[in-house]
Nucleic acid binder design. Structure first.
Lengths: 190, 190
DNA sequence: TGGAATTACCTAAAGGCTTTAGGCAAATCA
DNA sequence: TGATTTGCCTAAAGCCTTTAGGTAATTCCA
């Protein structure tokens, strides 16, 4: 019986690819086993449960996305940084819809590891770093974090769901104008 | 064999209630049959498939929500209308998380009926009605529809997921300030 | 009003996903 | 090279979906 070389990390990685192909919700332990040409039960040595697998995929995605945000933000500030931040999220979601969906997968905290929490914290910090380019005290800064997160995530979700598909202007045209509007808003936040 | 009085409409209604109790993703034909004290197969006379059931629940929720928005908007304009619109969405999502999730459930267009499409159109029109209180041409108005939809939906999603739970200020305090910020933004949209 | 037609719900069964238990063989290590 | 660990396997139970075909309750209407 040839060994394929399964491991928690490889399963999470392959699971992320599978999610992009068939959708995060359609990722199953069975489908992943099929992809490795292996019996389903074999995966349970590396993954505690289906939820555990999904949590691992979420962690892979959230971490990868934080890396990309950090890279895009290097050397930028103000409006420039805001656009870079927003674009990374949107581009990532379009390139990797399954992984993006995974990042928004809220599982029972029990299966979410510390890596997941750490990646989540990195995202918060990166958004706050962008906001340093604007002059906000508290609680305005927290409000602004929530506004940015909501608008960016909301737009991406609706666009991915096809809500903007059948009308003019294209989703890609509205996007920079909306981010610019947020920039203006942050600049004059009372 | 006593008849329980099943029908497509009753199943959709009961399914909506079930969704609020256990979460939209956890709604299954089996669970619904159990709730009616009836064999699973019996439901398939009234509902084409599990996806069909979910689409019906989505339609119930989307329609109900449009009714509430329309009622709340009556006699209001400008900032007042914007807050009313936003609050109805948020309050509905908090009161009926399962139904709200259902409204965001994008199924294969094949199972989504015309009622669903009609309810979706009503929502668009209601948002545009609110925007009539601001002075926007095209494409600014469409951008604004997308901005409002994204921010409101994004905020609700993140709040429901618990993203705002463990920090100050409370999610309920940020909300009106964010909506006010959007009002300011719309007023001065370039 | 009583028989015919319709309709509501049932049993049976096949196929898929999850998860646990226990086993053999391949890799690793002394 | 023998002992141990570990990777993958078979088997099986439980739950969900969906289809096929049957029986009984209701409705229709002559």
């Amino acid at each position: 019986m040839a060994r394929v070389g399964l491991s928690g990390a490889r399963l999470a990685q392959a699971g992320a690819e599978l999610a992009d192909e068939v959708g995060f919700e359609q990722v199953t332990v069975s489908a992943l086993a099929r992809r490795f040409g292996v019996q389903v039960a074999s995966l349970y040595s590396h993954v505690r449960s289906s939820d555990d697998l999904k949590a691992r995929i979420a962690t892979v995605a959230l971490t990868e996305l934080a890396d990309q945000v950090a890279a895009a933000l290097a050397g930028r500030a103000g409006r420039d940084a805001l656009h870079a931040l927003a674009d990374v999220y949107r581009d990532y979601a379009r390139a990797h819809p399954g992984r993006y969906a995974a990042t928004r997968h809220t599982a029972a905290a029990s299966v979410l590891g510390e890596q997941y929490v750490a990646a989540g914290r990195r995202h918060s910090e990166l958004v706050r770093a962008v906001l340093r380019g604007y002059d906000l005290g508290e609680p305005a800064q927290t409000d602004a974090v929530r506004l940015l997160g909501s608008t960016i995530h909301g737009y991406i979700t609706l666009e991915l769901a096809g809500s903007f598909a059948h009308s003019e202007p294209s989703a890609g045209d509205s996007w920079p104008r909306i981010i610019d509007a947020l920039d203006t808003l942050l600049r004059s936040w009372s």
